[in-house]
């Protein structure tokens, strides 16, 4: 078998069959992947959650993960924050001609490892090859199905509610930006790429009626989630600068490149709005799960600055946290 992706790998011929059988299916799971046009699935219960997401990232491999683990965890998390238990994923891959097969294998292996860890099966997929220069090595789309064993009870957010995060913010975006900007880390910094389903189930089952809202803080970071929550609503979201868990490395890169950790992407962080009085107990529950060991209360819902997110700084002043219009660019001013 050739050791790079050739146009023929997308042709429908033997080369493609070999790729699917020997590389993709072999790695992602012979026992789960069904080769028909669709997978036929047994679904317990009636209500299901269904989502899809496409993944593109440069570089495709970064400290703490690669596009494969990202594609599994991202979709698992989209299901998990709805309160669903993720069960099945699809995996659709677009490969660029010339991609070394070893790189593809590493990506597939991390998909498999991430799926096994999160307890989901990859059950169907597709592969296409585009000519060299027409893609960025590899694009992955995953769709996911989840079920509700204990359906979440939805409550309105009210002033006095607490804002909780399950750990350090900005690690994923920082790890990726460092790769792009030729920065390195003396003690290492890994992407936080991780599945949130176990963590969220722990919270739902221990405090079934205290959760108001959950959202994974991916692109746009924590600040963007808080903007989404407060937009046109009769309350504001206040963060406390001193309680934000931020690794030194994330602070360092942010200062160097002139960007704000609150807007940096995460791939394993969930913002949870809960009843204020139950928040300390919820944080304790979260700490029992590896993905929640650094959980903290980082702010609260208030009557001030209604419709906006803001932060109380170390000197006790407030500053607004508006929605960003575009991605943050490294700057020198």
């Amino acid at each position: 078998m050739p050791d790079t992706i050739l146009p023929g790998h997308g042709s429908g011929g033997k080369l493609m069959n070999d790729l699917i059988h020997d590389t993709i299916r072999e790695t992602l799971g012979n026992e789960s992947i069904q080769l028909d046009d669709s997978a036929v699935l047994q679904l317990p219960g009636r209500q299901i959650a269904f989502t899809t997401d496409s993944y593109t990232i440069t570089p495709i491999e970064f400290p703490g993960g690669n596009i494969g683990s990202l594609a599994v965890n991202g979709t698992v998390n989209d299901l998990a924050v709805m309160g669903a238990e993720p069960l099945y994923l699809s995996c659709s891959i677009i490969l660029e001609e010339g991609l070394p097969l070893d790189e593809l294998k590493r990506v597939l292996q991390s998909m498999r490892a991430a799926a096994d860890y999160a307890g989901v099966s990859i059950v169907t997929g597709d592969t296409k090859v585009v000519p060299r220069g027409k893609g960025d090595k590899i694009y992955i789309n995953t769709a996911g199905i989840g079920v509700f064993t204990s359906p979440p009870q939805r409550h309105d957010i009210i002033p006095g509610d607490a804002i909780i995060i399950n750990g350090y913010i900005g690690d994923h975006g920082t790890a990726v930006m460092a790769e792009r900007n030729k920065l390195s880390f003396s003690r290492g910094l890994l992407s936080d790429c991780a599945p949130l389903n176990m963590l969220i189930q722990q919270v739902i089952q221990s405090y079934p009626s205290s959760i108001r809202f959950m959202r994974d803080a991916t692109r746009g970071g924590v600040a963007s989630v808080l903007n989404e929550i407060t937009k046109d609503r009769p309350f504001g979201a206040k963060l406390i600068e001193n309680s934000l868990p931020v690794h030194d490395e994330v602070r360092g890169v942010s200062e160097l490149l002139g960007i704000d950790p609150l807007y940096i992407a995460n791939e394993g962080k969930v913002v949870i709005i809960t009843d204020g009085k139950d928040a300390p107990g919820i944080v304790e529950e979260m700490k029992k799960i590896p993905e929640g060991k650094d959980a903290a209360i980082i702010g609260e819902i208030t009557d001030n600055y209604t419709g906006s997110a803001y932060i109380t700084t170390r000197v006790g002043g407030n500053r607004m946290l508006p929605l960003l219009i575009e991605e943050q660019l490294p700057r020198i001013c």
Binding site: T312, T313, R314, V315, G316, G317, N318, R319, C333
Partner: peptide, 28 residues
């Protein structure tokens, strides 16, 4: 210009005493 944004970002401008006005110079 970096002072312009840092006065906001750190919240220091938010705790200015009354009657103190900060104007921006040609520093961006």
């Amino acid at each position: 210009g970096t002072h312009t944004t840092e006065y906001f970002r750190t919240g220091v401008k938010d705790i200015f005493p009354p009657r103190l006005r900060l104007v921006d110079g040609p520093g961006c």
